[in-house]
Write a protein that binds this DNA or RNA. Structure first.
Lengths: 222, 222
DNA sequence: GTTACTTTCTTTACATGTATAAAAACTCGC
DNA sequence: GCGAGTTTTTATACATGTAAAGAAAGTAAC
């Protein structure tokens, strides 16, 4: 019995703000002015409270960002039609996650979280693991395969977006450019040969090709 | 002629500290007390200068960390004997980079740099690209292949080390644990089935397996 | 009511990276 | 030697995340 005798109000000082309000307001700020403008003070005044009050609803700023990512995923990560063939299901599910995350580059600092374990992403994880099992992998290998895909996906996004960020707030020659500039062709023939093409080549988006290769390799090994 | 007539001393106020001194001192601090203890103020006093003076030798703290990584790579990333077979050469070269970086987890914030373009890593990049070409890929596909490998490698390290870091400075139940706790087995049968094994499975180090799968897939595609 | 206890909120304070402006220390042309 | 120009160093200041302490606002037992 859910104790109807004791309506038992909550103890302690009643909260004036809620975790949800914190997240919602944070989202508004980020949507309107970008993640750089999201500071704890700004958020607090926007919400009509004090910075430290937020810390009763959110462990720290990083957790707030994780919650924002969750919120974002819940709103935009809709379950697509997946192919029946398990192998293609894996590819399409992974690509869907990648696409959603790539469109939302401010989460880079969060992306490095353990797995992508937002509740809304769970379905995709299930599809990937199940697809791998459907291709003949043992469940254990399927989990490993999922993680390998996740490493690749997270790495691609993190590397690409921080590279892009660096390029915007700084137009001095890249470290890479300097390295390529004084390259000894006799010691590094391939790199010297490719030097001129390196930048355009790395600018290409080859996530999907890499993903297909990775999945193919995972299945061949299993 | 290197103008011997004009010994041409450098203009302006002579520097009291050098970039090299900055990096060396920073390295000493990091080695002795960890990267968390490396602050610009601490570094300045250690060096007998002021915080802002450092900024004439280093663009900002991030660049300092990149330089530290370079320095680290130059000291520890020795060129191993590589197999003659190009495909194994790729695997061994990538694994060598991974091993060196994984042993030095504080560089995570730097790792997200564009490519791994430390001068000392160049040789490995050359080996990987050349190995892929040796397996029959076009130079363009080899570059893409290298980048795919790099995404996977960087992602693995970043995800793993930040997960580990999070675990040390916090022993509350993980987000993941909570997610797995209330998992609907009818909606997510695979994940529910694997829930108990998830943590040990993800704790396993499967970098090399994933790498081999990835290389195999890249070659099959090319 | 009064006291004890609990939770939330506020105040104050600190460490950190770094922007900005000014001072200091030098060379060069005269 | 002197002013102009250049580079490095210093002083000061600010924004940010968040720790620590305690005040505020409620419930429960008496």
């Amino acid at each position: 019995m859910p104790q109807p005798s004791a309506p038992r109000k909550t103890l302690g000082r009643p909260p004036r703000i809620s975790r949800e309000e914190v997240v919602t307001t944070a989202r508004r700020i980020v949507d309107a002015e970008g993640v750089d403008r999201l500071t704890m003070r700004r958020l607090a005044t926007e919400i009509g409270s004090t910075p430290m009050a937020l810390y009763h609803h959110v462990r720290n700023k990083e957790e707030l960002l994780v919650l924002l990512l969750d919120d974002y995923a819940a709103r935009t990560l809709h379950r697509p039609e997946l192919p029946a063939q398990p192998r293609e299901r894996v590819v399409v599910a992974a690509a869907a996650i990648h696409e959603a995350l790539a469109a939302c580059p401010w989460i880079v600092e969060v992306l490095t979280a353990d797995d992508l374990m937002s509740t809304s992403a769970l379905w995709f994880v299930e599809q990937i693991v199940d697809g791998l099992v459907g291709c003949g992998l043992t469940p254990e290998r399927a989990v490993h395969g999922y993680r390998t895909i996740w490493y690749y996906t997270a790495g691609e996004i993190v590397v690409r977006t921080t590279a892009a960020r660096r390029r915007t707030d700084d137009d001095r020659p890249t470290y890479r450019e300097r390295v390529f500039a004084d390259l000894d062709p006799s010691e590094f023939p391939r790199l010297a040969q490719l030097a001129a093409h390196w930048a355009p080549l790395t600018a290409e988006n080859t996530y999907l090709d890499g993903l297909r290769a990775l999945v193919e390799g995972l299945l061949a090994a299993g």
